[in-house]
Structure formats: C-alpha cells, structure tokens
Write a protein that binds this DNA or RNA. Sequence first.
DNA 1: ATCTTTTTGACCTTCACTGACCTTATTATA
DNA 2: TATAATAAGGTCAGTGAAGGTCAAAAAGAT
Lengths: 150, 150
Amino acid sequence: MNLVDLIESYIMEEVDKQENGILEVKRCDLAETFSCVPSQINYVIATRFAPEMGFYVETRRGGGGYIRIKRVVSDKLDITSDMFDKMGDKMSQHVGNMYLKSLLDYNIIDESSAEILTIVMSDNTLSGINVESKEKLRANIFKNVIINII
Amino acid sequence: MNLVDLIESYIMEEVDKQENGILEVKRCDLAETFSCVPSQINYVIATRFAPEMGFYVETRRGGGGYIRIKRVVSDKLDITSDMFDKMGDKMSQHVGNMYLKSLLDYNIIDESSAEILTIVMSDNTLSGINVESKEKLRANIFKNVIINII
DNA sequence: ATCTTTTTGACCTTCACTGACCTTATTATA
DNA sequence: TATAATAAGGTCAGTGAAGGTCAAAAAGAT
C-alpha cells in the first residue's frame, strides 16, 4: 500500500471520529506520524480530499497554523460530485452560468447564492487574469462554494 | 488557541460589557494579565481592532496613559462608502474577513452571503495566482459583489 | 519504453511573538 | 520655573512556528 493511501485512510477515519465532521490537524504532526516530508500531506489533500470527493479544506499559516478538513454531508452530494467531475478543472463564464442555472432548477442552491456566484464568476469581476488561470480559478471558486452551501 | 485570539476575545467581551461601548485599559495591565510583553497588545489591536472591523482606538502616553477601544456605531449607508474609500485596489484575506464581519454586524449582508464571500475570498480558493494579483482580485470581487447585492 | 502517480527537498510566504530602544506626559524637586 | 525622575504607550526589526509551491527524482503501470 502506498503512503498516500495510508495517510488518506488515516485522515478519513479521523474525520469520521469527529462528531461535527471537521478534523483539525497540524501538517507537521501528520508528516511526523507517517515519517514523510510535510509536502506529502499537501499531495494527499490535493488528490484525495478535493471538493469532488465531498470535502472542504481550509488552512492557516503562521504560529498556531492548521489544516482543517471537513466532510460534507448532504443528499445532494452525488449530483454535485458528478457535476464537478464532468466539469474538470476549468470553466468558462458561460458554462458556469449554465451550471448555476441547473443547480437552481434542482433547488440545490437558492436564488441569492446564485446571484452572488454569477457576479463573482463573471469575466468582468475576474478581470486582469489571463484566460487560462481565470478558467481554472472559476472552477475552483465554483467547487469550493458549492460544496459548502449544499 | 493563540495568545492573540485569547486577548482578542477578552477585549471583545470587555468592550461589550461597557454600556457606552468604550473600554479603557492600561496596556501594561493587559500584558500582565496575559503574561506577555506589552507590545503584544499593540499587535492584537493592530490586527484585530482596526478601523476595518468597526473599532476606533485612541491612546495616551505618559502618567495616567491608557488605551481606549471604542466600537463605532455609524449609519448603515456610511459603512459601505467608508469601506470603499479606505479599501484601495488591493485587499488581504484578513482585511476582507474583517470587512465581511462588519457588514454582517450591521446587517448589510446576511449570514449566507457572508459565508459564500468568505470562501470565495479565501487564500485557498484563490490559489494559483501570485500574491499581487490575488489581492487585486479580492478587492475587485468584494467591490463588485457588494455594489450589486446591497 | 513511455506515461502516470508518488515521493522528496529546497526555497517561499504568512502569522505570532519578543525585546531593545524611542516618545510623550505627569509629577516631584532644586 | 526649570529640570529630573517616573510612568505610561509606540515602533520596528528579528526570531520561530506554521503552511505553500514547484520541479526533479523515484516508483508503478501499460
């Protein structure tokens, strides 16, 4: 078994132990536990705890820093996960709006959330960034917000 | 929990206890209470009780000196225009969160909008962009959304 | 043999905290 | 009334404690 799999299942278990579904760890502690370099933890999180899998990750640097991993519980997860997978890691404004519309139709998000996201994801708001990064950014914003409000 | 967080919540509570909303303390007393160096108090005030958060801080040196922390109550309409004036074209995550918190406090935006914006403007969500552009982007997002939803 | 995934390490940024040194106001005293 | 002592608070650079990034090396898969 790979290190990445070991760490993955360890984190999974720990998250499930928390009754609020939120695990807070120190990256260096985890790294120490598995005697690996700290950046290995980033790899695990990036590949195994992405919004596509129903997780939301939040971190903080500096003294007292942490990595916080939240398992999302919602009956709408299968719909959004599917959507995220199909979407890939880039998204145009147009496609984004279509996704928003279908989330609205399914009553997965409400009108005011959709409105905010429309503004946030507009080309206009996301100006000053090259197209490539902009599309990635849009997908990223979309996934992270949606996973949190479903 | 960090010392900053402890001191922050202590001050918050004390301010709320005062019926005029004004707390007057001696920096050295506070430092003693938390067994830290006095300049730590300055750090807390600079990072947690800045004008962006809706506080006004006044100090006096010399014998009988003090630090006076006041919660500013201003008109709803003034809040946003003040914010826009002070903001400039760049914004850190920290400052962004402070603005959001104060918009929430004044009921200018609701909880769910604040939550969405917190996620959108987080360093994590806005990953893959260099610091300079990220800060500009954040300011841009903030302005665009706020103008459109209030 | 080539392509993909995992693992590592060097270097970077952010945040919290401290201490030495500076400025200002009050009070005691020559 | 000057002046010295004392009692505040202010500044800023430096240290340490986190986490982030990215590219290269290693290991697996096809």
